[in-house]
Design a protein around this nucleic acid. Structure first.
Lengths: 129, 129
DNA sequence: CTTGACCTTCCCCTGACCGGAACCCTCATA
DNA sequence: TATGAGGGTTCCGGTCAGGGGAAGGTCAAG
């Protein structure tokens, strides 16, 4: 398979696939003409990576996950721990964003949104007491 | 005031303040020795920027907000619209993260987390049917 | 006079790619 | 046989919002 094939099958842009080779996540062979030549296992790995990235795992997380995936004697506890750590980072981000949303929502609610210059959003940002 | 003073008063790192000058968000004067010399209005602007950034506004949003802040004849509707757009981006991110959390939470719940290699998290990532 | 705490500019680094230039390969068609 | 379209390749630079650190100037205290 050429890169266009694996791209459409995995849903990852060709640029991303080249990048993943660059940083050593996959190692496709080369054809005589210099084109990358992907095996089925490469396609599997790319799909794996795509799903892990969609769940918000970092590239380094993915590297670890791939290593665990390929290690037949891994302990599921190792995978679970990584997932739990990631989960708590996600929770934290959600909480941060919710705090932003609440604050900003309050400000928006208090703003007339008309032609007058008086604006509680700016007033708050300016730090009025 | 030197940069150290405004840094501690505004809570922004000196690097950040220099960066904001670089991109034209603030324009502090210079003393004879070449040091940046900040007026009270600069400090106000920096505090304004810090709060806006803490609410997740991008630098370009901040540029617009500052312009509106300094425009005595602005319409509050302009500010409100920017805030609403930002709000909807935040909502979107929250929804994305919640979806991740839910999926990952399910996977974690199904994983024994022991010494055995069998792991539903990896199984799901590998795309088993 | 020296020490140490400031300040300056400068350049490279981050994460996870994306855009585009310049060039090569292959196949179908006129 | 030329040529044009549609693949592929590498390489360079940019993104966002700064952070790290080097090399060097400045200032107040001891």
């Amino acid at each position: 398979m050429n890169i266009g094939d694996v791209s459409s099958r995995s849903g990852l842009p060709a640029k991303t696939i080249r990048y993943y080779e660059d940083i050593g996540l996959i190692k496709p062979h080369r054809s005589a003409n210099g084109y990358r030549c992907f095996a089925k296992t490469d396609l599997h790995k790319l799909a794996f990576l795509g799903r892990a990235r969609a769940l918000g795992f970092t590239i380094e997380d993915c590297r670890t996950l791939m290593a665990l995936y390929e290690d037949e004697s891994r302990a599921s506890a190792d995978v679970k721990q990584l997932a739990l750590e990631h989960l708590s980072k996600i929770e934290e981000k959600i909480a941060d964003l919710q705090a932003m949303r609440d604050t900003l929502g309050e400000l928006v609610k208090g703003c007339a949104g008309d032609n007058r210059p008086d604006c509680p959003i700016l007033k708050d940002l300016s730090g009025e007491e």
